[in-house]
Computed example of a mutant assay.
Amino acid sequence: MQHFLAPAITYDPPSLLYTLLTQPIKTLIRLLDLTFSTLRPKPKPNQPPIRIVCISDTHCLKAPNIPDGDLLIHAGDLANLGSAEEIQPQIDWLDSLPHRHKVVIAGNHDRMLDPRSRDTLPLKDRSVALKFNSGRRLNIYGAPQTPASKKDDHAFRYPQESDAWSETVPRDVDVLVTHTPPKHHLDLPIALGCEYLLKEVWDVQPTLHVFGHIHAGKSDFVGQLKGGQEVVRWDDGQRALERALARPDGLFRGIVDPRSWLDVARVTYYGITNVLWEQIWGGSSPASTRMVLASLMYCNSGELRNPPQVVGI
């Protein structure tokens, strides 16, 4: 649901008008980054490619058309209240799908799977190495924890200001699966993702990062243009972008602050030079991660209207 002014609840996508009024400079910067990213070469999958189908946030519902692939990933929130009666049918449904390999993590709604509820289930922070028919292998790591701004009764929560991620992800991971997104990536203009997870992803730089949680992350204006996926290139341009998005903004404060326009200049400079280097002069591209928001739930509609995301790596 789009709103003329502020979204009714935090997790709803704001209207473009509201975003422009509250974040004019950041909106410009996000559009500049999207434009330059589109012009840069996309990372090519290894050969033979592994086809990965990414879903999350099914909330007790079963999507009718899940594409086939080599690996199915569910990035959490199988349930609503998190009882065994809700989770078991979801597990049975996933088990019935034809994918040879399936990786599932819990989300903040999957209360029964939280170690505080079932301390006999070692479900947090696990790694698995999968071998595919092509002979290729992938190291996959999953973690369900999500930041909370206040105490609630959801599962796998940690205080928003605390670091729950540093030195937690193995450095040889190819595919990272988390329920929360990293900050500033497909997490709405107000950036509901975790800054400490972002720092950890900077250190690990996996080939693929799959997450969910923010249903509407691909429903705001820029999120719609990205279509639920983005390629994050780990270079100076990315650092400049994140510094700019972390700065306070506002209709007047952002426009009159010279630092805001310096951020615009930096993002533009790095964007142009990177496009010229890679597309004109044939220079090599930096390491990159494809980030995927896999939520099937459309905003808070109660309907699985978002399509599964399919990636080849």
Results as ranks from 00 to 15, higher is better:
I87C: 11
I87V: 15
I87R: 12
I87W: 00
I87D: 12
Q88Y: 08
Q88R: 14
Q88H: 14
P89M: 06
P89N: 10
P89R: 11
P89V: 10
P89C: 09
Q90R: 10
Q90S: 13
Q90M: 14
I91V: 08
I91Q: 03
I91D: 02
I91S: 02
D92L: 05
D92C: 06
W93S: 11
W93N: 12
W93K: 08
W93G: 07
W93A: 07
L94W: 08
L94F: 14
L94C: 09
L94S: 08
D95I: 02
D95Y: 04
D95A: 06
S96A: 14
S96F: 07
L97R: 12
L97S: 11
L97T: 09
P98L: 03
P98D: 06
P98I: 01
H99G: 06
H99A: 06
H99K: 08
H99Q: 10
R100M: 01
R100Y: 03
R100F: 01
H101A: 02
H101I: 02
H101T: 04
H101E: 04
K102F: 00
K102Y: 00
K102N: 05
K102C: 03
K102A: 04
K102W: 00
V103H: 01
V103P: 05
V103N: 04
V103A: 09
V104H: 00
V104Y: 00
V104D: 01
I105P: 05
I105R: 03
I105E: 03
I105T: 07
I105G: 05
A106M: 06
A106C: 07
A106V: 09
G107I: 11
G107W: 02
G107L: 03
N108F: 01
N108V: 05
N108E: 05
N108I: 05
N108L: 01
H109D: 08
H109L: 02
H109E: 05
R111D: 11
R111P: 09
M112L: 15
M112W: 06
M112S: 13
M112Y: 11
M112F: 03
L113V: 14
L113W: 07
L113I: 14
D114T: 12
D114F: 02
D114N: 11
P115E: 05
P115S: 06
P115N: 07
P115D: 08
P115C: 03
R116P: 08
R116I: 13
R116S: 15
S117T: 15
R118Q: 13
R118S: 14
D119P: 15
D119Q: 13
D119W: 00
D119H: 11
T120D: 15
T120R: 12
T120A: 15
T120G: 12
T120M: 09
T120H: 13
T120I: 11
L121A: 08
P122F: 00
P122Q: 04
L123N: 11
L123A: 09
L123I: 13
K124V: 14
K124D: 14
K124P: 06
D125R: 12
S127H: 01
S127G: 10
V128E: 02
V128G: 04
V128F: 00
V128W: 00
